[in-house]
Simulated scan of single mutants.
Amino acid sequence: MSGKNWDRVPIDAQSVEAPLSLAAVFLVVTVGSDKAALSKVASVLGELDDLVKNVGFRDLSGRLSCIAGIGADLWARLSPDRRPRELKAFAPVKGPVHSAPSTPGDLLFHIRAERSDMCFEFERILLDSLGSSVTVVDEVTGFRYFDARDLLGFVDGTANPTGLDLPASALVGDEDVEFAGGSYIVVQKYLHDLGAWAETPTHVQEEIIGRTKIDNIEIDDDDKPRKSHKSLATIEDDAGNEFDILRDNMPFGRPGQKEFGTYFIGYTRYLWVIEKMLQRMYVGEPPGAYDRLLDFSTPHTGTTFFAPTRPTLQKLADGAQG
């Protein structure tokens, strides 16, 4: 859904609009409780763009980028008087069969590039810079899988907004002027039961996902009592206006450990959109008719962040060091 007065939103947002990459790292850390740790983290956040440039210059075609997202608790420490209107901790969701947990995280670093070695080198230097001020609580290395498919075999991210709809869907607008140009981020790490999925007939898989597997065509299930993942993840208001989010999901896995997953990351202008999407998936619409994809995919993490504009990030860093 496109927002009004979009020309009033700053153009200095972090690189939320960067195109889908071949490689990514999702790094979630917590920050030590002492002032020294906070000051160190603030210093690194203030120098983040320089670090991206220092690593990225080695191959400009690698398109290295990094988005820093800040959790509600850390935001309160950095800026106790001002915060984005909707920012809060991830709210766990309890459904009749499946649940979405809430897990710790003060900072998210979403690192993207066309080369996995650039993601690796950036993360290595970043963590060296942060030192003992942070503790890594989750680290996932993602990869682009064939023609943008997940490990379940379906194309992922088809419904992403494009053109002017992208910033209007993913970046805060004049409804929260002080934080316009920022973006709410929700992340969840899902692990798949590929054995059970492989035993499920293709036509049933397609009904669960809401798209055909080979050619990625939407399946109309509006008249069916049990909605597909696609339908449950589509959010509309009472007037029928659809609210999009920007997904940059990535597959990950370790076959030797029987670990196969999808790292969900959603950027949104309105946090309530993703919250409503998760309620529909886990509780069901109508209640009880939950997303059948959850019978095969289990969330192990759930955390919410806010990625401010670059100037706001710099102000937070300067304030914590002052």
Rank of each mutant, 00 (worst) to 15 (best):
Arg292Gly: 02
Asp193Thr: 12
Leu87Gly: 00
Gln14Pro: 09
Gly142Met: 04
Gly266Val: 14
Ala36Phe: 05
Thr298Val: 12
Leu45Lys: 04
Ile208Met: 07
Pro287Ala: 08
Glu175Ala: 05
Ser133Tyr: 05
Leu191Arg: 13
Thr309Met: 02
Val31Lys: 09
Asp248Thr: 01
Phe57His: 12
Ile217Cys: 09
Gly181Tyr: 02
Ala233Pro: 06
Lys276Thr: 14
Phe90His: 03
Val25Gln: 07
Asp291Gln: 04
Glu178Ile: 02
Gly240Asn: 10
Ala289Val: 02
His300Met: 11
Leu87Arg: 02
Leu48Thr: 03
Arg8Gly: 01
Asp291Glu: 08
Ile208Val: 13
Gly56His: 02
Glu206Arg: 01
Gln279Thr: 10
Gly62Pro: 10
Glu178Ala: 12
Gly266Ser: 15
Asp156Thr: 11
Arg149Glu: 13
Lys224Gly: 06
Gly69Asn: 04
Gly157Lys: 05
Gly181Glu: 06
Ala170Lys: 00
Phe306Arg: 04
Glu285Val: 03
Cys66Gly: 08
Phe264Tyr: 12
Pro19Met: 10
Val177Ser: 10
Thr141Ser: 05
Glu178Lys: 02
Arg226Gly: 01
Ile67His: 00
Ala42Met: 07
Ser33Leu: 04
Asp128Glu: 14
Phe57Val: 10
Gly157Glu: 09
Val140Gln: 11
Arg115Glu: 15
Met277Val: 04
Thr158Asp: 14
Met250Ala: 12
Thr30Ala: 01
Gly302Ala: 11
Leu126Ala: 04
Leu20Thr: 08
Val93Phe: 03
Val28Thr: 15
Phe306Lys: 05
Val134Tyr: 01
Met118Cys: 03
Leu51His: 08
Val9Met: 07
Arg280Ser: 15
His300Phe: 14
Leu64Glu: 06
Leu293Ile: 06
Ile245Asn: 00
Val204Met: 11
Ala320Trp: 06
Leu246Ser: 03
Ile70Asn: 00
Asp50Val: 05
Asn5Thr: 04
Tyr145Val: 04
Lys213Phe: 15
Arg85Phe: 11
Tyr282Ile: 04
Asp106Lys: 03
Ser231Glu: 15
Pro19Trp: 10
Asp193Arg: 08
Leu294Glu: 11
Leu127Asn: 05
Ala196Val: 08
Thr162Gly: 12
Pro201Ile: 11
